[in-house]
Design a protein around this nucleic acid. Sequence first.
RNA 1: GCCCGGGUGGUGGAACGGCAGACACGGGGGACUCAAAAUCCUCUGCUCGCAAGAGCGUGCGGGUUCAAAUCCCGCCCCGGGCACCA
Length: 946
Amino acid sequence: MTTPTPPDAPDDTPAHRYDASLADQIEVKWQDRWQREGTYNTPNPSGLLADGDGAMAGRPKLFVMDMFPYPSGSGLHVGHPLGYIGTDVFARFKRMMGYNVLHTMGYDAFGLPAEEHARQTGEHPRVNTEANIANMSRQLARLGLGHDSRRSIATTDVAYYRWTQWIFLQIFNSWYDADRQVARPIDELVEEFDRGSRQPIGGSWAEMDEQQRRAELEHHRLAYLGEAPVNWCPALGTVLANEEVTADGRSERGNHPVFRRPMRQWMMRITAYADRLLSDLDLLDWTDSIKTMQRNWIGRSEGAHISFEVQGRSDEEVIEVFTTRPDTLFGTTAMVLAPEHPLVDRLVGAAWPEGTPDLWTAGAATPAEAVAAYRRRVAEMSDLDRQENNTKSGVYLGVECVVPVNGRRVPVFISDYVLMGYGTGAVMSVPGQDQRDWDFATLYGIDIVRTVEPPAGFDGEAYVGDGPAINSDFLDGMEVGPAKAAMIGWLEEHDRGRGAITYKLRDWLFSRQRYWGEPFPIVYDEMGLPLAVPEDQLPVVLPELIDWAPRALDEQSEPEPPLGRATEWVHTHYDLGDGRGDREVVRELNTMPQWAGSCWYYLRYLDPTNDEVLVDPGVEQYWMTDAQGRVGGVDLYVGGVEHAVLHLLYARFWHKVLFDLGHVSGPEPFQRLYNQGYIQAAAFQDAREIYVDAEAVVERDGRFYFEGQEVTRKFGKMGKSLKNSVTPDDMYAAFGADTLRLYEMFMGPLDQDRPWETKSVIGSHRLLQRVWRNLVDEDTGACAIDDAAPPPDLWRATHRTIDAVTSAMEDLRFNSAIARLTELNNDLTRYDGPTPRAVADALTLMLAPLVPHFAEELWERSGHTTSIVYEDFPVADPDLLTEETVEVPVQVNGKVRARIQVATQLDGDALAAAALADPRIAELTGGAEIRKVITVPGKLVNVVVG
RNA sequence: GCCCGGGUGGUGGAACGGCAGACACGGGGGACUCAAAAUCCUCUGCUCGCAAGAGCGUGCGGGUUCAAAUCCCGCCCCGGGCACCA
């Protein structure tokens, strides 16, 4: 709550006590030296960043990475660096364990957040972004993070986005060969068309003119211009990806209304990779929850496409449905289409057939009127209304279609419970086996035929479980699985359908009508079709614009990309290498979405200075190939769970394209993913439920007061909106960066959310003070350790600590590692005499990953002349891990009743004898029958009496 | 509704079937001090008891086991994700 006053108190404090001001001196000193000496520069096997003396060459590699931040202008709070500290501790630990560790940091600086912020401050995004990056790097450096600063990138650097554009061209110039399940260069598709080994979608290749051929290729490219229903957000002046729109139809950023509207936009054919994105999840060392989220997002379902002929209509008006339950086809009693299904206008009947129930007509004079009225009604309902009010409704089209397998004629409806965006936008309604169909059928008086036998007594709803087929002719008696297979067989044999797989995943909408993003390396000629800017003409530099702000527009208007205002930039000329020489073209005006730069930054970290290739193949192989035969990629990727779907799915997709085209050596970018938790903090609301400044709240008797008024406490993510931020600067002033690092690692397991308690930080500060006092004379500042060999007990305790700390660090259980180190230090505090050097060194080395400045300083004061960063982590001697005797608890019927001191090596029988000989145990078991004695040598005895 | 996590002292958390509560914060007591701060020592799950000790105890109810916070079954609560996905 209140910022603590520094605990360095009055005048009689020893001159060399480890307090905030000494911590500050030490931290600045070592940060300067690390910077000067390039301590964290990590050598590549070759190229500009290769190691001078080859000292790292023989070491195994480890690539540790954080999800890079948006350089926002508001500065850091103590919640931000949690993951960065975690990776830093792990990277330092692994360096000391003999690894060549790559760890750096970059900035995801394009995109809406940076631009919206710039819009509010009125500064040009580039000025603003660069200032923010400088500020953020300074704040991170102050934490003592051991990053290789030579490798830092920002996605807004021209030298970086040149390669983002290059990757875009790779994708644009590729198509997906569904037979071989790989992306291939588009030139190879042209060759296949030329040879006739593959046929175009749009007719005969030989007979196509140039424009038709280019249009044909658009249908195959992995990056293409597509006319699709998109999310148009007039307030932001741009379209958004599905992933950027919330469930209630608003923009994730800014919470503005979003409208669905068909527009011509850039798309990425991620759906081609749906199956590989799904199945390769099995190769990854990620948490189940993230894998599950990706699986749900991809949304694979197996089933069948089935064709339904419409009564009295031509073959061109056949309705295609997708179903996961082809086995229930005999139970189909209606057909339901999405209101916006393209066939609806053609299918709709001229008049209501004789005997149409009033309920089906919605009171309209003709089917066409009913459809028009229903569509209007649906359009007026927001997505939220639909969710809250999911009573089904629909109208009859006045026509019937025919169920292929039994010739039954069933009515065709439209209803808003069928979505155009999934499957074929049409469902065969089987009320007996689908609850939604049941609801609709009961409402509209549609027949219900059960085709799976429900359990006895089951009634009143659809039965979706397993069971034998009934009312289904040749399927009768079969269980669901075999019945599905049999029905698919029948459909294929009679050419009425086929087995099929559908995905929820849609192609990725890749263009934005924004200024602050990567320009597309695309131009248009007189045919109006996109052409690639040649690779050797990259980068296409974002033009300087004074008026870069997006216009707020209304629902009906067309997007106005700000780049359209850069007239001279837009109208340009290129020699496109197509034999036509230099000619006039116009540029693509859209920019790429924020995700583009973050899709591949890990690759640029590897070889950031290379201007010949994206990344040198040898360097890529060194860092991205796994020695243990796992899939390879970044060894540890740490970040927030909010990127579970978007960023991680897009990056995997790009990586797979690059893999197919031979630019990277493995199919996946991130071997192991770890989600750090969030730091929560108490926030306080007054009577009007308005948040008040948490720092000004005082506690009395478990109640909380702000300016005399009682307020209520809640916990939430630290930040401006809850007015509960604590800044690292305050923590440096009160304790120093090492204390902040130590506290954040001690609060709990890295993957868990944890509440910030400023008053608890003192505990971590005290630990460092006690360690300091055990090794340094507080009055003189001189080293206070002793060269004599440590006594056996203390030496054993040291080795047990080494053992425990090593395994805790390996598992990222830093809180447990710190607890063990505290215990060893408590032993030292109680130890009578100056600390033995061997123990002091081991303790300092073990602390080094956690509190690097503090450890460097102790290391130097105790007489070492080299940096501790590359020293070996201590190794536990197995002989020293056990004591000669051990105290063993003795249980009677599972309850501890005595403890005996025995030789550690004592075997089961001897241990049992020793336990039974204990007077208290003898007393408790005397007279009772001893049924069994369980012994775990060195651990426990349990005497079972009857 | 479905799918993931998670529920342990006053608080953060520890314990990978074997002594529940390590370590820390907070709190009590003591030493040092004229006094305070800092430091050091010590106690601190709950109940009963002067004590030795006993009983209870890891969200709730069952089960497996010599032994369960941990494994199994059924509930409850909290957090997150998805949601008319055919």
